[in-house]
């Protein structure tokens, strides 16, 4: 069982570094670390459905925003609930919406689901823009709580929990086998008794509520939200790109992509004061990864096949061809 303990070294080291981080970095870098953890968690949430089940969600920002708005509304006047009470409320709202959106569309081919999620996020943005109770375009303020360590450790807790759940559920359980089976061949999975529609919906709901938790923490952290800052399509784009670069359908892929891209983004912003340059780097990186590293950066660390039928093939196959696409 030597190898089993060896496998624990990296996770334990990560947790120790995360726990001690506030003692050796200043508040500026602590904020960057908090943001990096949030993006690693969001990328992981997108990867649950996109990477493990092969269903591309173009509207994940909807659930991030639902968590953020639920917390903002419940913490603000006249309700004034404490922060940690608002998180389960956001989870409940998000789960209901995910069932309503995913229930009918996950039975169809991937393209219908992708369009439905994208449209749902757009609809929520417009809804938040025009309604009074959401503060319209002006958005909502939350009671300020200026304690960087609190938000850092809250984000550590959420991110570690997200990765633990993903590890246990998708990498080490029957449920994970069912999810990956339906990604690779839906008809064969059905022929083995797997209720693929149900498993997809369960995965989608888990993915959505995870994003909503990060939305709730984000809202309280930045103390001000508006429709663009929490429902914006660029939030989903970031998650997709982080997972693609890091590695679809793996545990470390979203962590590498999420932390790596967010830190690069901040460094570019620090040196040039603008992130237009970041978009150009991102574009080039995506092209290179799709062409040469279909398993993402995480694929560099594992012995993987170069043949057709990668996770990327499966996800794209579901999107454009539906059925059992991906075998070239």
């Amino acid at each position: 069982m030597k190898s089993r303990w060896a496998g624990l070294i990296i996770p334990v080291a990560i947790v120790v570094v995360l726990a001690l981080m506030p003692t050796f970095v200043n508040n500026y870098w602590l904020r960057i670390a908090t943001g990096a953890l949030m993006w690693a968690g969001l990328a992981c949430s997108w990867n649950m459905l996109g990477g493990y089940a092969g269903y591309i969600n173009f509207g994940q920002s909807a659930f991030f925003g639902l968590g953020a708005y639920t917390t903002a509304l419940l913490m603000g006047d006249p309700i004034n609930l404490p922060f940690f009470v608002t998180i389960p409320a956001g989870i409940a709202v998000t789960a209901i919406c995910a069932v309503v959106v995913g229930g009918p569309t996950l039975r169809l081919r991937g393209a219908y689901f992708a369009i439905a999620t994208w449209a749902f996020a757009e609809a929520l943005t417009q809804f938040a823009n025009v309604m009074n109770f959401t503060g319209g375009i002006g958005g909502l303020n939350l009671p300020p709580f200026l304690n960087e360590r609190f938000f850092y450790y809250t984000m550590v807790g959420a991110a570690v929990l997200t990765y633990l759940i993903t590890w246990a559920l998708f990498e080490h359980s029957r449920f994970g086998l069912k999810v990956k089976a339906l990604r690779d061949h839906e008809a064969a999975a059905e022929a083995m008794g797997i209720n693929t529609s149900l498993v997809k919906l369960q995965t989608f709901v888990l993915s959505a509520v995870t994003a909503s938790v990060f939305g709730a923490i984000f809202a309280y952290w930045v103390t001000f939200i508006n429709p663009k800052s929490v429902f914006g399509g660029d939030i989903t784009d970031q998650m997709v790109v982080m997972v693609l670069l890091g590695g679809l359908g793996s545990l470390r892929g979203p962590a590498i992509g999420g932390v790596g891209l967010f830190v690069i983004n901040r460094l570019i912003w620090m040196h040039w004061g603008d992130t237009a340059f970041y978009i150009a780097i991102l574009g080039a990186a995506i092209v290179l990864v799709v062409l040469f590293l279909p398993d993402g950066i995480a694929g560099l660390f594992t012995r993987r096949s170069t043949k057709s039928g990668t996770v990327l093939d499966k996800a794209v196959g579901k999107l454009v061809g539906g059925g059992e696409g991906g075998r070239g």
């Binding site: 990604r183 690779d184 061949h185 008809a187 064969a188 999975a189 990668t310 093939d313 991906g326």
Partner: peptide, 9 residues
């Protein structure tokens, strides 16, 4: 008829 593998597993 055509082997329906779970390719990535």
């Amino acid at each position: 008829q055509i082997p329906a593998m779970f390719d990535n597993m």
